[in-house]
Design a protein around this nucleic acid. Sequence first.
DNA 1: AAGAATGTTATGTA
DNA 2: CTACATAACATTCT
Length: 263
Amino acid sequence: MPEGHTIHRLARDLQRTLGGAPVRATSPQGRFAEGADRLDGHPLVAAEAWGKYLFCDVGTGDVLHVHLGLIGKFRRRPSPPPDPVGAVRLRLEGDAATWDLSGPTRCELVTVDEQVAIVARLGADPLRRDADVDATRERFVRSGRPVGAYLLDQSVIAGIGNVYRAEILFLCGIHPTRPARSLSEEEFDQLWSTTVEQLRLGVRMGRIVTTDPDEIGRPRSRMRSEDRLYVYHRDHCRRCGTELEVIPMGGRPIWCCPVCQPA
DNA sequence: AAGAATGTTATGTA
DNA sequence: CTACATAACATTCT
């Protein structure tokens, strides 16, 4: 379910609703009982996203590390919460809200050192102020890999998923099969700034909307779902109507418009 | 009601 | 070492 914007938004919401006061942590299905015990009663000191990875520091030396994977979800519920819906692995109950976690690929307690090691494997996160753009540009100009595959590589840029990679390349008019090193500096910089802009927009909207409101003729909040994207999972280009190419890349399909994104 | 889904990791191959 | 392919995994939503 999530790309980077979802996790950043989640970190912000967790911080806002659970920050400061002690949190009651439970594992309704018992599958994370020990972890929940160690979290229980401690305040959430900081919730932070790094790409698609979430870290919640409880100030005891334990850091909750969560990766939602494809289907994981943190659901917000009122406090006190109703019965869990589905297989809830971890429940964090604060005064203002309760959060139920289901379906994560990763849910574990790590040390701060381990957190640092995990983050070290990740590339620059465009949503973070400490993102190293210059280092990322350097890597781009050296790689012969297709830019479509490269964008999905979390060790290069952290936070882009299959929807954003297709949409960002469309917005930049770049064909996904082009080698990363074939991009000019200007093209890379445009790619980066578009990524920052789009991910921020995603955080604000709480969903991915890459189409231009002027082009669609409606504000983003009132767009129909089929109008929110230009190419992802479409048959025809939302801008020019041309039939889209679908190319397997990085193990997953990418859609692109042969007219708007010349090879 | 079966299948798709905004993903990562481990493992194998060339 | 790099690039690429494949499988396994987890649950919800349509």
